[in-house]
């Protein structure tokens, strides 16, 4: 018996073989880029936050305003065809911040505008971001109920 031929590999064996043959992501370089860009986006948020705080606004107002401005910037940069290039460079560094959430709402809405303003823009707006709201809000309700049961 010679070596087992690739054509006779099981699915599992073939998957492992392809994995070995495939070029790998440059994890370290990608992670550094994500760290730097993600960090800088958060710095932008912090600076906005500092600015409003220094004008004597209360904490909740400041964080709401900061969110709104960051989301606006994410949406704007998407509309200007810049955010996709940022994402290509930074990966999670621009996906994970709230600006990436805005990008995930605007990009499908732009792409599917050709299918109309209701079923295109309106409906497709949430193909990527919808799950975030579904799971985020559901999680908050669940922990809220648990919190109620534990404390009251």
């Amino acid at each position: 018996m010679g070596k087992k031929m690739v054509k006779d590999f099981t699915h599992k064996e073939y998957r492992d073989y392809v994995e070995k043959k495939s070029p790998k992501s440059k994890v370290l370089a990608n992670t550094v880029k994500a760290f730097v860009v993600g960090g800088l986006i958060c710095v932008a948020g912090q600076l906005i936050n500092n600015f409003f705080t220094s004008r004597g606004m209360e904490k909740d107002t400041v964080s709401n305003l900061t969110s709104i401005i960051m989301i606006f910037l994410g949406a704007l940069l998407t509309g200007l065809n810049i955010y996709d290039n940022l994402g290509k460079f930074a990966g999670a560094g621009s996906i994970v911040p709230i600006t990436g959430f805005a990008n995930s709402i605007v990009s499908p809405a732009m792409e599917f505008k050709s299918e109309g303003y209701v079923m295109g823009v309106g409906a497709k707006m949430f193909v990527v971001a919808g799950p975030v709201l579904v799971y985020g809000i559901s999680a908050s309700i669940i922990v809220g109920i648990i919190y109620y049961l534990l404390h009251y």
Binding site: D84, A90, P108, M110, E111, V128
Partner: peptide, 17 residues
């Protein structure tokens, strides 16, 4: 891309493969 993957303006990275 629109049909099989992601919107063009979504900031994602393409896999090396």
């Amino acid at each position: 891309e629109k049909q099989f993957r992601f919107p063009l303006e979504l900031g994602t990275q393409r896999a090396p493969t």
